Simulated scan of single mutants.
Amino acid sequence: MSKSEVMDKYLDAYEGKISGSVICEAVDSAFGIDLDKAPILKDNAIEGSTSASGKLSSREVIDLYLQQSGEKQTGPVIRQLINKIFGVNLEGISALEGAKISLYSKDQWIVHHEKDLFVVHTGIGDIDVKIYPTTYFIEQTGSAALPEDLQQLLLKLGYTYNEEIGSYYYSNPTGEAVPDSFKGKTMQAIGKVVTESFATL
């Protein structure tokens, strides 16, 4: 069962009204992601809204969106909502299962397994991304560098090698979060190299 399916099962089994708290618990249970720690993207719909503490919590922001939305709160609809509020693409994360790619984002490990080969590490606000091999990859191959074919694919996408951090690095020139389409192309490039060259590792 995929993580998205686990989340759907959790929500289907819940008998009360779906709230921000229920959604946060469902995401934590299925994905191990703490949305309470995830920064909220700027949005006009929530900008002017404050709580007693002066700032809305993640759960309160989700509640606000749920109130504004007339849609039936299904798993796929809620996952789109999470992506809109936090920039956390749960469908994409679910698809990474078994891909041998670790993902660090929103100040926490989103996907992380002992035998993953490469790390995709996004910075604050997802404005920049760095990619580097895992300790497991280095131990298995004896190389601390990304494979040549992956380097070429990343260069084509606009990454450059940053010697200071020892990683391939990309920063969005607009100063905004890297779009999902770019993240998708990055994951496809890494996935292609894993499948073609390192499927047995």
Results as ranks from 00 to 15, higher is better:
S105E: 15
L96V: 02
E60C: 03
L41M: 14
I131H: 09
S19Q: 03
S49L: 15
L90R: 07
G123P: 00
I33W: 08
S69L: 11
Q68D: 10
G20K: 04
G98W: 00
E139Y: 09
V111K: 06
E25G: 06
I33P: 08
N83E: 07
A99I: 04
L103K: 08
I82F: 03
K55T: 14
R59T: 02
I78D: 10
T134A: 07
G123Y: 00
H121E: 14
G98D: 00
A95G: 03
G125Q: 02
N44D: 12
T122A: 04
G70Q: 04
G16F: 11
D8R: 15
V61S: 11
S143N: 09
D128A: 13
A45W: 11
A13E: 13
M7F: 06
G92F: 01
H113K: 14
L90W: 04
L81Q: 05
V111H: 13
W109H: 13
S21V: 13
T135N: 13
D63R: 05
Q73H: 12
P76S: 01
D8E: 15
H121F: 08
I110K: 07
K37F: 08
I46N: 15
H121V: 13
Q68W: 10
K100Q: 01
S29V: 05
L117M: 01
I138F: 05
D28H: 15
A30P: 05
G32P: 08
N44P: 08
E47G: 11
Q140Y: 01
F31K: 12
L11A: 09
S94K: 09
V120K: 10
I85H: 01
H112N: 04
L41N: 14
L66G: 07
V61T: 15
H121Y: 14
